[in-house]
Amino acid sequence: MRVNCVGAIIFDAFGRLLLVQRGHAPGLGLWSVPGGRLEPGESDEAGLRREVLEETGLRVAVGRLAGTVHRPGPGGVTYVIRDYLATVSGGTAAAGDDAAALRWCDRSDLARLPLTEGLLDCLTEWGALPHA
């Protein structure tokens, strides 16, 4: 079974990437871009805006698709995750929903933090690494 998911690649004015620390499985305690499962009938854009608002308190404008990954899940599920570039359009950054914490990260942070499997490789391949 395939489960459609979306993720947001968001940079601040300093070129830092927004990451959230997962508060629940899968990936409990690991850092990743904000996002999650689409609800039935929900578009990628609507789902991305909803997930980012729930997890970070930020409203975003959704940009182009950066890339797609497939990740195995429990019980034979495959998560199909489409990651989009997004720009903050409002709100106040604060961890919420299933995010235990959030932070703006530079390249050195990515090397130190426990990231979700494959995240760094995907960001590198897609040319979506923080500037600094």
Rank of each mutant, 00 (worst) to 15 (best):
Val6Glu: 08
Gly7Glu: 13
Ile9Trp: 02
Asp12Phe: 01
Gly15Val: 08
Leu17Asp: 11
Leu18Gln: 00
Leu19Ile: 04
Val20Phe: 04
His24Tyr: 06
Pro26Gln: 00
Gly27Glu: 10
Gly29Asn: 10
Leu30Tyr: 01
Trp31Pro: 04
Ser32Pro: 11
Pro40Asn: 01
Gly41Tyr: 10
Ser43Arg: 12
Asp44Ala: 10
Ala46Ile: 08
Arg49Asp: 02
Arg49Leu: 04
Arg50Val: 10
Glu55Lys: 11
Gly57Cys: 10
Leu58Arg: 00
Arg59Val: 13
Leu65Lys: 15
Ala66Trp: 03
Thr68Arg: 15
Thr68Leu: 15
His70Arg: 15
Arg71Ser: 01
Gly73Trp: 13
Gly75Val: 08
Gly76Thr: 04
Tyr79Asn: 11
Asp83Thr: 14
Asp83Cys: 14
Tyr84Gln: 00
Leu85Arg: 09
Val88Lys: 11
Ser89Gln: 00
Gly90Asp: 07
Gly91Val: 13
Ala94Leu: 08
Asp97Gly: 03
Asp97Ala: 07
Ala99Cys: 06
Ala100Phe: 09
Leu102Lys: 00
Cys105Lys: 05
Cys105Val: 04
Arg112Ile: 07
Pro114Leu: 14
Gly118Asp: 09
Gly118Thr: 10
Leu119Asn: 09
Cys122Tyr: 12
Glu125Asn: 11
Glu125Arg: 12
Trp126Tyr: 05
Trp126Gln: 06
Ala128Lys: 04
Ala128Gln: 05
Leu129Arg: 13
Leu129Trp: 13
Pro130Gln: 01
His131Trp: 00
